[in-house]
């Protein structure tokens, strides 16, 4: 839980403006995670991670830092990029875009290009993961398979973050043997900058609902009425012996509030699982760990 927000932010996909596939055709837009993009830039430009962070902070956007750094590290920015900047992508013609991406691709290693292509074209759920953290030499890269799933989970507990009841950490459960086991956690409420953490249309209503339905206090955690079901999406799902649920998940996002209480509590009484996903299903869905000895 300690770095949940941080990992959320880093693994959140960004929209890559466009890329060329192996046949040379433009494909866009494409989703790439911020981490992938950053790792790639660091390796290409040969600067250290802290220096890139400084550049990005000043340039104000990942795109612009990328355009300025990539152009220069390979011997001079093309006139096009300097004049218009990456931000003016919309005003470029197709041939100009293609020229820019051909230029980008020419700066990459063959193996890296193949890897990035497979990433971007969505043929595999592979993610580039550095073996070392920020600040160390990160030349060795590991290809690791990750999985994204979408499940229906039921709200079990909430933990108020502030006394004004504007933020909660929600704990969701999945169905297991005539009960619910807590598995996934996500943040909800105002993000302190005038927006909402999950961006749901009915997020304010949900906050009010939680306030009205608080139950027993268990330490800092409050239980709520077990009736509300949500559609969740999470990345980086793996089997894990460390977690009570038997799997781990990163960047849990609430997609939808399924406001249908009768169906939600059906599994407990009728034995079916019409709304809430069962834990067994998730475990069966996940790939079994290989005996490579590298997975932790």
């Amino acid at each position: 839980m300690k770095s949940m927000n941080q990992s959320d932010r880093l693994n959140r996909p960004v929209w890559c403006d466009a890329f060329l596939d192996e046949g040379g055709n433009l494909i866009f837009p494409i989703k790439v995670s911020v981490n992938t993009m950053k790792g790639w830039i660091l390796e290409r430009t040969g600067i250290s991670a802290w220096l890139f962070i400084e550049c990005q902070r000043f340039a104000g956007s990942l795109n612009e830092a990328l355009a300025l750094l990539m152009g220069t590290s390979t011997g001079g920015i093309t006139a096009m990029v300097l004049q218009h900047g990456f931000e003016r992508w919309d005003t470029w013609t197709d041939s100009e875009r293609k020229e820019w991406f051909l230029f980008l691709l020419s700066a990459m290693e063959v193996e890296e290009r193949r890897l990035l292509m497979s990433l971007l074209s969505g043929r595999s759920n592979a993610t580039l993961i550095s073996k070392y953290g920020l600040g160390k030499i990160s030349s060795v890269r590991d290809l690791k398979e990750t999985t994204s799933i979408t499940v229906n989970a039921i709200l079990l507990y909430v933990r108020p973050i502030d006394r004004m009841n504007t933020q909660y950490e929600l704990t969701f459960g999945l169905y297991k043997e005539e009960g619910y086991t807590s598995c996934l956690r996500a943040m909800l409420g105002e993000d302190g900058m005038g927006g909402w953490l999950q961006g749901l249309d009915d997020e304010p209503v949900l906050l009010d609902w939680i306030t009205d339905n608080l139950g027993e206090r268990i330490g800092p955690i409050r239980s709520v009425t077990v009736s509300e079901v949500f559609e969740l999406q999470c990345d980086g799902v793996e089997l894990s012996k460390r977690h009570k649920a038997g799997f781990k998940a990163e960047s849990v996002r609430v997609l939808k509030w399924l406001r249908n209480a009768e169906n939600a509590i059906a599994p407990l009484t009728a034995g079916n699982q019409s709304m809430v996903t069962s834990l067994e299903w998730v475990r069966d869905f996940l790939p079994k760990p290989q005996d490579s000895g590298q997975t932790g």
Partner: peptide, 16 residues
């Protein structure tokens, strides 16, 4: 003092 700042040849700027 950031790597993002790398000037072009001044003649190309004056041509622009």
């Amino acid at each position: 003092g950031l790597p993002i700042f790398q000037w072009r040849d001044q003649q190309t700027v004056f041509d622009d």
